[in-house]
Computed example of a mutant assay.
Amino acid sequence: MRRRLIDIPSVSGGEHAIADAVEAALRAQAPHLAITRDGDAIIARTETGAAERVIIAGHLDTVPIKNNVPSRWDDDGATLWGRGATDMKTGVAVMLSLAAQAHRTDA
């Protein structure tokens, strides 16, 4: 998912396509969460009635593209290069993974 997110253009003011992808991923992988979309902002939350919650937040926009799309792996396959790889698209991929695993255990 991380590489797919990196390859979606999302320069500030043009986040619609990546917001669509994040929303689709949440709806497909995290049906246990309530998903709300407000423009290009996506809120995914549990509805367990818990008195306390943890907020995990980030952003979808990047600075302008400069020869860093599409993404690419370095020669040894250890480092992924591309627009937003470290700020913030890898973080978004981690959040999507956490959302898919956020099931109520016991309050």
Rank of each mutant, 00 (worst) to 15 (best):
Q101T: 09
L98K: 09
V69H: 09
G58W: 06
Q29Y: 01
A30D: 02
G49F: 00
R3M: 15
G39C: 04
H103G: 04
V94S: 05
I55M: 12
T105Q: 13
A57C: 12
A19E: 08
G84T: 04
L96I: 11
V54N: 08
E15F: 00
G82I: 02
S71Q: 05
E47L: 06
R72K: 12
L60I: 02
E47N: 14
A24K: 11
L80V: 05
Q29M: 02
M1I: 12
M95D: 14
G14C: 14
T79R: 12
I18W: 01
D61W: 06
N67H: 12
E52K: 14
A85C: 14
G77W: 06
R3E: 10
E52M: 03
D61V: 09
I43T: 15
G14R: 12
G91P: 10
A44L: 08
T36Y: 05
I43S: 10
V11H: 05
R83S: 04
E52S: 08
A30C: 11
V22S: 00
E15M: 10
D76N: 15
G13K: 06
E47P: 01
S97L: 12
D20G: 06
L26V: 11
A44Y: 04
G91D: 11
V63Y: 02
K66Y: 07
P9Q: 10
V54M: 15
A30K: 01
N68H: 10
R53P: 00
K89P: 03
A107G: 08
H103A: 06
G58H: 04
G91F: 03
G49E: 02
P9W: 07
D40L: 00
R4M: 09
I8Q: 02
Q29P: 00
L98Q: 14
I8R: 02
W73T: 05
E47Y: 00
D76P: 12
E47G: 11
L80T: 01
A93R: 00
I8C: 08
N68G: 10
I56V: 15
L96P: 01
I18G: 00
R4I: 09
L96D: 02
N67R: 08
A17C: 05
R37Y: 06
R53H: 13
A28W: 05
E47S: 12
T36V: 15
R104P: 03
P64K: 01
P31Y: 10
D61A: 13
W73H: 06
S12V: 11
I43M: 13
D40S: 12
T86L: 09
G77H: 09
G14Y: 01
V22G: 01
A30H: 05
N68S: 14
A51T: 15
R53M: 01
R45N: 08
R4Y: 06
R104N: 05
L26P: 00
V22M: 06
T62R: 00
P9C: 03
N68I: 09
